[in-house]
Design a protein around this nucleic acid. Structure first.
Lengths: 280, 280
DNA sequence: TAGTGGTCTAGACCACCAC
DNA sequence: TGGTGGTCTAGACCACTAT
């Protein structure tokens, strides 16, 4: 093949402001070139990219090299490929989860779903939950430390998947110490009427403090499947531990699809914020 | 080549609890096999994996297929490869950022660095900051909306990189409206004695409310470089907008390396938490 | 059926690291 | 110097989608 290696297609684009040196690998330069086309709007969100064969001819490289370049952008979450259809630029729709007050709103509560419903309704979306499961699980070291029980002790796990407009949104799993679960009737594979938080409060276990921990990581294969995540989408891991005046009551682990979720805290006096249409 | 395709190496490992079906792609099955070995501790954090050539022989596939499998695990953040050295299982060291009170601690303040120092000292680490930069930047739509200025208006940007024990930790960029910056002396390419927050308060711009937004995404190439992120490491994006009783004062954008950071909020009455050694 | 991306092979040469 | 991962080629066949 008469390749005129590393020339024409890159003219004027390789030595742009932020990045690519002349000596970078071919696939990185192709990735960079496509990234720029997306960033500048030459290829817009939702648009199809050239096919792999077209890119192969356009840049005069092997298909494998084209796929390496597309892989880079896929891992950055910029594009998404589907067999038989093509490769498109991904578009983002962000939903907001108000951590500070999401659970304390006093609505028609039904398990942990009330807050979620209210949030979604406020944002004009249709929230549902699916796949409720109640299980008994042994405490991992992390769970044991946070709930002040011994490692391996039985915990009650109540898990649900949240969907918005038919799309998976987050996976939530709440853990309760066994003694509290028995006292408050959490050992049912159904919704707790009025919600778990009220059931706890009714027996004197009132939640008065929260510790929230937020981290991020790449999803495990089953999480990617359940959340329908495409390559290059991280998850936001949100762990809330709640306390009464005496002890930890509950640990709720939420795995948010990173490309569709934003967690918000509103703290202090936000008069100026609310006045200007901030609080949705 | 006499390949006995898809047999021996997988016996007893392919149809484990959560996952791999017999019909999955070869490279996925190899990835799954290695993932299990890591998960079960057969290969521990810090250990070296077999070389690509060894894996190629072990599974009787082409080297390219081995690399596809390793790519999967790399994108999950489980392993890290270095040219000439090999491939190792990554280990995690998590540091904690206490969002609720990080900025309100009244120590020997020096720009935005006081809170960071205090946090790191509490965790027994050595915090430093590098690469301070003061710039004037036009407001993007996102910045304009949050700071209640017009798009394109000039904003003062004061940026630093945070390092812990010599390792990059997070990138921080604070934006201030131009009128406040002039009034409070923020247009200097140096630290503001006593800290910016005090300088604002001294002129009557006291911060009394915060809105924090947390999202995650894959890093852009320059962020990955500055933070020294390896493949498959997302970033945690933390945006804090602060308010006086009248208006937004400041927007601070922090990009945390996702594999080394945890953001924590402590809310409400946490007597029970503190009593049991919770508050570090 | 034609075209797309998905998987896989069997080589090659290069850059970096430890010895 | 030998071994490692990094890059790249030039094919092949398959699975899925659109028409």
């Amino acid at each position: 093949m008469g390749r005129s290696r590393g020339m024409a297609p890159f003219v004027g684009t390789t030595s742009r402001g932020g990045g690519m040196a002349q000596s970078d690998p071919l696939y990185q330069r192709i990735a960079s070139d496509l990234r720029d086309q997306i960033r500048t709007g030459a290829i817009k969100a939702g648009d199809r990219l050239p096919t792999e064969v077209e890119l192969r001819e356009q840049y005069d490289v092997s298909r494998n090299t084209v796929r390496l370049a597309l892989g880079v952008l896929q891992n950055e979450g910029m594009i998404s490929s589907t067999q038989g259809k093509g490769t498109v630029v991904r578009e983002q729709v962000m939903l907001t989860y108000h951590a500070a007050w999401a659970e304390s709103r006093d609505r028609h509560a039904s398990d942990q779903t009330d807050a979620f419903y209210a949030e979604m309704r406020d944002q004009g979306r249709k929230g549902e939950y699916r796949d409720f499961e109640m299980r008994i699980k042994p405490a991992t070291p992390e769970l044991a430390a946070r709930l002040h029980v011994d490692e391996g002790d039985s915990l009650v796990s109540r898990a649900i998947s949240r969907f918005v407009d038919g799309q998976p949104f987050s996976l939530q799993d709440s853990y309760y110490p066994m003694d509290i679960s028995q006292e408050c009737g959490l050992l049912t594979p159904h919704d707790v009427p009025g919600g778990v938080i009220r059931a706890l409060a009714a027996k004197g276990h009132t939640e008065i403090g929260y510790v929230d921990e937020l981290t991020t990581r790449m999803p495990r294969p089953d999480e990617a499947r359940k959340l329908g995540l495409s390559q290059g989408t991280p998850v936001l891991v949100y762990v809330r531990t709640t306390y009464s005046d005496k002890r930890p009551l509950r640990l709720t682990l939420t795995i948010f699809a990173g490309d569709r979720n934003r967690v918000v805290y509103e703290l202090g006096d936000l008069t100026a914020y609310a006045e200007n249409g901030g609080a949705s």
